[in-house]
Design a protein around this nucleic acid. Structure first.
Length: 625
RNA sequence: GGAUCUGUGGCGUAACUUGGAUAGCGCAUCUGGCUUCGGACCAGAGGGUUGCGGGUUCAAAUCCCGCCAGAUCCA
């Protein structure tokens, strides 16, 4: 693993500039902030002279010139020019191309590109869908974000644990179990999660007609008790649902390492242990009188610098355990996070839930019996949860602040994203407006469209080959569309846009990869890479080289900021730069052998990096489409 | 009542965290481009007072203050 040519050049240039600035009598702080790629004014530019000019005689231009006069420019700089107060550098392209090509060929898809994570373990939690319905488009957005964030961390050298929390004691599952006992017990031919989800809609229609609150609360108690018929039934229904949901996950090439079931948190008494700790440290207390008598609450009044979201509260408390003894969502989540960060003993037992996922790895689940596995106990945990949960997530972090564990409060990273909505409004499991808008529906629709395109264009392929390509293109279109927005922005889902195969899209990137692969195949160059960088220095090649040279930096940025859209944008720009070159200069058909070799080598480097980029996005690359 | 997020050409958005040279991209519209490597492509054109008003600065889409509009959460 080597650092990117871009960061090396930037570092070296910054150091040289700093030295020169000091020699010229200035003291610039953080000079590397002011050094970056520029367009139209050389290759790299520096704006530090403006900063220095503050409150000092002399124009930025003069200051820039005096710095340049003292500058011992690194060898890779061909020309230095002062323009409008900026210092502009022109690189020796041949050198930079060589550096970038070596770098591009050194990148292996199975290995991290960055050592940023230092092999530290990080938990990424997604999508934590209730086990009583199929994934709808909103769940899919969560899963795709989570999977990609996990891939990004892996690429940055983290040891990633992909966890999925199964809330099988929440009100939704209780209602579904009630429905199974009181309504239709026959799943029939339908995929189990779809059937269960549709039954759930019926339960809600039933609840509007009559009040079943008492029945539900009794049912929940039975479900919480080990060994009852109801607890076994509930777990069985939930597990069948999760298996059906897994088919969806696998069809989208989305995988996890371990399922954590709420019933197992309860059964292993970790919720009690968590509460005990909170009570002992005085973070929580039992109320004896007033509105919240017999509740266990978290006391916020002791917090010194209370974050702004807690301003304007009527009472400075948050209920953790209600007076009927049931825990709130926040209480469960605090306990879960204590486990994640190793504050509770790892009392879970694990067994394989799926022996071998399509990615070759097992999927474990918490269980009554089984072996202890060293999951959890991390310093960083990323939760993929939509922005409506900002407040509960803030409460969870606050609990750790109150415990004095600022490190944990800081280690909980909430990737808060704008929820996905239909044009007609937000999706809701209860209302049933997800019917026709499930993840399964979307993939089927996208595959249909992709298949008809490939069927026309590549008639000679076998049906199976066409299906494989159609699947890959469908995934490309869907995932790219879900990832391209900045996370805080809400998604108004559009079938037309999600199924768009042109422009800024997954298929566009896949198409450029396929083109590059075709060139390489037709060239019969095999694995032999010998080229002369001097033969390929036009802007078309160099624009592509510049982008490739900052691949590592881009992945790191995407990771540090928890923004997958940084990667979609990069992939698209990379593909566009290649397309530009492809359309503008002859590659295979070049009459000049040195040029031909050089351009083919660049195509090969491009193929390597776009393929890695796509794999981070969870998008398969195809050799033809 | 309190808090958070959003507001950028007809539509969808990037750049805002870290102020920097001409606000980048896609869709749609219009005009071109396959006797030369894959047209799921490319080139070009039109389309912008970056919600409004102040402020800071040599420089503001970006930072600060005040409004307006929409969404969400808490009470």
């Amino acid at each position: 693993m080597q650092s990117s040519p871009y960061s090396r050049v930037k570092d070296e240039l910054s150091r040289a500039l700093e030295k020169a600035a000091k020699a010229a009598g200035f003291d610039p702080k953080s000079i590397d902030d002011t050094v970056e790629f520029s367009q139209g004014f050389g290759d790299i530019s520096c704006s530090v002279s403006f900063r220095i000019a503050k409150g000092r005689p002399g124009t930025p231009n003069d200051i820039a010139q005096s710095i340049v006069d003292k500058l011992a420019a690194p060898d890779f700089v061909k020309k230095t020019a002062v323009q409008n107060g900026y210092i502009n550098f022109y690189l020796h392209r041949v050198w930079y191309i060589k550096q970038t090509m070596d770098y591009a060929f050194s990148i292996k898809r199975a290995e991290p590109v960055s050592g940023m994570g230092k092999n530290e373990k990080v938990i990424i939690e997604y999508p934590s869908v209730n086990p009583n319905k199929p994934w709808h488009l909103g769940h899919l957005k969560n899963a795709v974000l989570g999977d990609t964030v996990a891939n990004i961390h892996q690429a940055c050298g983290y040891n990633v644990e992909r966890e999925d929390f199964i809330e099988d004691l929440g009100s939704q599952v209780v209602e579904s179990v009630w429905g199974f006992l009181n309504l239709n017990k026959e799943p029939g031919e339908k995929k189990f999660d779809h059937w269960l989800g549709e039954e759930y809609v019926k339960v809600n229609q039933e609840m509007e007609k009559r009040d079943i609150k008492q029945e539900l609360s009794k049912l929940l108690q039975l479900m919480e008790q080990d060994g009852t018929y109801e607890s076994k039934l509930a777990r069985d229904l939930s597990e069948r649902c999760v298996r059906a949901q897994n088919q969806t996950a696998f069809s989208y090439l989305i995988f996890r390492d371990v399922l954590i079931w709420e019933t197992d948190i309860v059964a292993t008494k970790q919720l009690e242990a968590a509460l005990e700790l909170l009570l002992k440290k005085g973070v929580a207390k039992k109320m004896t009188e007033g509105e919240h008598a017999n509740c266990i609450v978290m006391d916020l009044s002791a917090v010194k610098n209370l974050p702004s979201e807690f301003r304007g509260l009527k009472e400075m408390i948050k209920v953790l355990i209600r007076n009927d003894g049931t825990p709130t969502y926040v209480a469960k989540d605090i306990a879960f996070h204590m486990w994640k960060f190793g504050l509770l003993d790892n009392r879970f037992r694990f067994i394989p839930f799926v022996e071998r996922q399509p990615n070759g790895k097992p999927l474990f689940t918490t269980s009554k019996s089984g072996k202890g596995i060293d999951y959890g106990n991390v310093k960083k945990a990323v939760n993929i949860i939509d922005a409506r949960q900002d407040y509960p997530q803030a409460l969870v972090r606050l609990a750790f602040t109150l415990l004095g564990r600022y490190d944990i409060a800081d280690g909980i990273k909430h990737l808060s994203y704008g929820a996905l909505e239909l044009e007609s409004g937000s999706l809701s499991g209860r209302s049933g407006n997800w019917i026709g808008n499930t993840a399964d529906d979307l993939l089927a629709e996208a595959e249909k469209k992709a298949f008809s395109l490939i069927n026309e264009a590549k008639a000679k392929l076998s049906a199976q080959e066409k299906e494989e390509v159609a699947r890959a293109v469908a995934l490309g279109a869907i995932k790219f569309d879900l990832l391209r927005l900045s996370p805080e922005r809400k998604t108004i889902f559009s079938w037309e846009r999600a199924l768009g195969f042109k422009g800024n899209s997954g298929p566009y990137c896949q198409y450029m990869y396929a083109r590059a692969v075709r060139l390489i195949e037709d060239s019969k160059m095999g694995g032999e890479i010998s080229y002369d960088p001097e033969a390929v220095t036009t802007d078309y090649e160099f624009n592509l080289i510049k982008l490739m040279s900052r691949f590592t930096d881009t992945v790191e940025k995407s990771c540090a900021e928890l923004r997958p859209n940084v990667m979609t944008e990069y992939a698209n720009n990379l593909a566009a730069a290649f397309s530009n070159m492809y359309e503008s200069v002859p590659i295979l058909k070049s009459m000049d052998e040195r040029q031909r070799q050089g351009r083919l080598a660049i195509a090969l480097a491009f193929a390597n990096i776009i393929k890695y980029s796509l794999s981070i996005l969870g998008i398969p690359s195809v050799n033809m489409m």
